[in-house]
Design a protein around this nucleic acid. Structure first.
Lengths: 200, 200
DNA sequence: TCGTTGCGAAACTCAGGCGTATCGAAATTA
DNA sequence: TAATTTCGATACGCCTGAGTTTCGCAACGA
């Protein structure tokens, strides 16, 4: 009766260090967070930053893209529960999450990479889309559709147009607005502006 | 009396080839248009693509950034005149320009670079902002302010919020919408959606 | 204790690209 | 024609970084 034989027969020899693995991922995100693009990232820099030998990296990932894919996948996971009291409040919650995330340098750099370099790294794009973008998109779509159903939003509203206005306005502030942190009430103002419209 | 002595005393020797210069810029934009980021761009590739010796490049630009700055500056120059009949029409004109530009691969790649890599190339960022972003931003601001003054837009409209909704919605479609060309009437639909708002 | 595997460090080979230098030919002025 | 400058091509020295290999040591199971 060997211990733990069930399926996961532990192979002989020294087990891989979880600590090293964490350190590698952390170092990767660190460097990305310092503004490095994927092509500027070097395995050597990651190894050095993580205090790890290159061997230890190559034993786990076969190349840079695989590593970056895994590293980015550790971010952007949880989506907060929505109160569900009013559509306005839920939209504000969703947009305010964007605002808070954009305040984190790491997150911002990750978004940059996801939005722009991903064309050259198809794996990365697919995985990031599935993991980070789709859930958020679906959450917002659901809220808007609920609003249309309950009459809180206009019946003839084009759902994707609504998403474009809301998400786009937040993106615009993140990208183009004068530097510095976004105003704490930005999400609320964006939602109200989108609800009210520009016409008198 | 030498000919053309006035100010521009042509130095002796073979004159620099304008054709080569054009070819270099073209090759640079070509490669950028193929999705290369600045760090992936190599002078050697540019020279080869342009059918030119490296010497010919280094004689004109002292490094890669200078060349890219000049190359990008040749794009995005002209802003079309606005009809000025109605604010709605002018906004549609401005957004439709964005749509048309986003259909051009080169322009899209340039935007990517400008929006994301520019942090690492301050010269490039400054010049691109001044040349491409500011004029467009000012044009839209002017239209919106005119609309507020004439009563075509609501009096209490936050101008930058309006810009965020309009520009942001277009950006959203460019970035996140399902692949393929944008609908020809997208600008019109965005403007109408923003004017009407989402509330019933 | 012994065999196996992981560890970090260092050395290695190989590719690519930078910026410079040198070549013979071409274009221009004096 | 002579002097000067640019042309494309090519070679050069140098550096960075990828991915591999080797080392001696550490951690595990048997």
């Amino acid at each position: 009766m060997t211990i733990q034989e069930s399926g996961t027969a532990r192979p002989a020899g020294r087990p891989r260090s979880e600590k090293a693995e964490k350190a590698i991922i952390e170092a990767t995100l660190d460097l990305i967070g310092e503004g490095m693009g994927i092509s500027e990232l070097s395995i050597e820099a990651i190894a050095s930053r993580a205090g790890v030998g290159k061997t230890t990296i190559y034993r786990r990932w076969s190349n840079k893209e695989d590593l970056v894919v895994d590293a980015l996948a550790t971010l952007k996971a949880p989506l907060p529960p929505l109160a569900g009291t009013s559509v306005r409040d839920d939209l504000i919650s969703l947009l305010d999450l964007m605002r808070r995330e954009s305040g984190d340098t790491r997150n911002r750099c990750v978004m940059n990479i996801a939005m722009n370099e991903s064309d050259r790294y198809p794996q990365l794009k697919a995985r990031f889309m599935k993991r980070a973008v789709e859930p958020r998109r679906e959450a917002m779509r659901a809220v808007i559709e609920r609003g249309i159903a309950t009459g809180e939003l206009r019946a003839d509203l084009d759902v994707s147009m609504g998403m474009a206005m809301l998400t786009g306005a937040m993106m615009w502030h993140t990208k183009w607005a004068p530097a510095g942190d976004l105003a704490p009430d930005l999400a609320e103002r964006v939602v109200d502006a989108a609800l009210a419209g520009m016409a008198p």
